[in-house]
Amino acid sequence: MNLPPSAQLQLTETGELRHFLSIDGLPKTLLERILDTANSFVVVGNQEVKKVPLLRGKTVVNLFFENSTRTRSTFELAAQRLSADVLNLDINTSATSKGESLLDTLRNLRAMHSDMFVVRHSQSGAAHFIAQQVTPNVAIINAGDGRHAHPTQAMLDMLTIYRHKASFDQLKVAIVGDILHSRVARDQVHALTTLGCQDVRLIGPNTLLPTAAEELGVTTYNDLDKGLEDVDVIIMLRLQTERMDSAFLPSASEYYQAYGLTRQRLCKAKSDAIVMHPGPINRGIEIESEVADGEQSLILNQVGYGIAIRMAVMSMAMSGQMQQRQIMEANQ
């Protein structure tokens, strides 16, 4: 199959998902299947019995080299609802820097015969590296690597849009804030353009816009008011306070003046525009409280969708991984 290199590692020979590392290069049909499958799981989540036996007998290891209780909890809940056995390993990076390399950690984990790793790491490409090292036996789900990718977070945003808006090709979508450091923004751009969105706008000061961003097929704006004009979807990104220490920004208050989403600014967008944010929100830095809690905000809906997306991706990757194992056994 003729796939971009970024996708080859993620798919089986027949094009099924076997690792979920990044949206970059994945075909549209696969993204649509993830959304449809997740949609089904949203319904399961609303039922009295929220658990299904798809991953019964499988072991999922949450391998977190970087703290993130929120993300880990949603993956944990998703795995439990699929009836998998879940092991949480919080490996703080100081312990690995004390001599044990990532590779040694992986070798130890391999001995546990787990079926899936959910990986969070502060370095870009870490999930990629792990997938290359542990293939072919373990499915890897990227739960955030450096500033590279966070594909489940991006897909939950796509699910939010999918459930609340018409088809992607009619939409104007604005992503606002610290694009440079955002692993989610990169995957959001890949997902939106792959799903057919024609008008994706990245809005922020030059210090927070990545090099050559336009080549991703988006338009960049420095002026929030201009960038928000007539958009259907507004995705606000979280601003880490350490950005002020490393000279990316002068102060939170100046950032809010230029890029904070206020009711007044929200009026520039379409009247039925939806507002999203990955959380946790910095009220008064990225977004005004009235907007975050307002009618157009879907910030709380996103949490539930996050579990459904993770269930979908985990069951699809496990299925693909099992198929790949069978193909390999048959070839032997």
Partner: peptide, 10 residues
Amino acid sequence: FTQQGLNPKV
């Protein structure tokens, strides 16, 4: 489901 994959529209 590991052989057939998952039907997305459940």
